[in-house]
Nucleic acid binder design. Structure first.
Lengths: 164, 164
DNA sequence: GGACAATTGTTGTCGTCAACAACAATCTTC
DNA sequence: GAAGATTGTTGTTGACGACAACAATTGTCC
């Protein structure tokens, strides 16, 4: 174990025998520092919270945004194609599309060539809405830059490019 | 919109009029590329799946590992202190500890100085188990290295150090 | 010292999300 | 045409974050 293991209690004794509460940032993480997964997880939580807050007025969550963006760039995709491309389960995508269709942002059009599948398109209001979402998403991206630095953000995108 | 928006259907027409299925990696992501959140999310999913698989034999998930590691390095912490340090809700930590205590890895000891709180400690088998978990976690970390490269992993940890 | 506020652990609910399983309708393949 | 695969759908399970409420205990303030 490490040296920090010598801390027996959540309180530290002071000279006069009193105890005080120790702050969270005084607690050693030991092996957790050095785990990429832990850092990535914490960062991902922060980044999603900022995204949700920044796009709060239009009530769009990260997954919804990714679906809209993908359909906007590739009209006519099937649900299966969208699910595969974004790594979403097709069962989950059903509910996502139900919601987006209720909000008149997306429409499912029965495919003539394959009557099992639906061709996904943005509605006209969906197009204009997506343009606004993209502006807000760009603002969110600036928050990320402010948080970790412009160069670090680009390096990050470069390192993780293989996962997109 | 971008040039890739000129793709009207999930099938492409070929010269002889037949259609073929397009592969997932042919679909443009448009604005999604360039969003740090999307890349980080996909990476985080990959990294957690590898962690869960690598620690599958011992049935330890990332959150459980973080709790055990923290308690191991700082015996006697209260639940509140652990929750704050790891960014877990204290309500959620209750169930996590219930599970870990049932498996005899952790014990809750009533604090004498503050009878509301519990001092968290690893059991003796918990200590030896954690040592094994750490070896497996190190193996998982080597998988990450193999995936993104040693230098990139270290740069990543450096960039995200502020979130740990 | 006693009223009042804050903290700690706990229980519960709600919504998001990933992972499966099962199913009907519809292709594909042989 | 029969057998198998695919697509969209419904449902269940479990991990997880966000809240709200509560009893027990501690801290604070007058």
């Amino acid at each position: 174990m490490t040296a920090s293991a010598a801390q027996p209690s959540p309180r530290k004794r002071t000279g006069n025998g009193a105890t005080r509460r120790i702050d969270a940032d005084e607690i050693g993480l030991d092996a957790l520092v050095g785990h990429a997964g832990y850092a990535v997880r914490r960062f991902q939580i922060w980044i999603f919270q900022d995204f949700i807050k920044t796009l709060g007025d239009v009530d769009i969550r990260p997954t919804q945004y990714s679906v809209l963006t993908l359909i906007g760039a590739n009209p006519g995709l099937s649900q299966m194609a969208v699910a595969k491309r974004l790594g979403i389960e097709r069962a989950r995508l059903v509910h996502l599309l139900d919601s987006l269709e209720q909000r008149k942002l997306v429409k499912r059009i029965k495919s003539k060539s394959d009557r099992r599948s639906h061709a996904l398109h943005l509605t006209a209001p969906g197009e204009t809405a997506l343009a606004k979402f993209k502006r807000l998403a760009a603002e969110h991206e600036r928050h990320v830059e402010a948080k970790i630095g412009k160069a670090n953000r680009e390096r990050l995108l470069q390192i993780l490019a293989g996962f997109t």
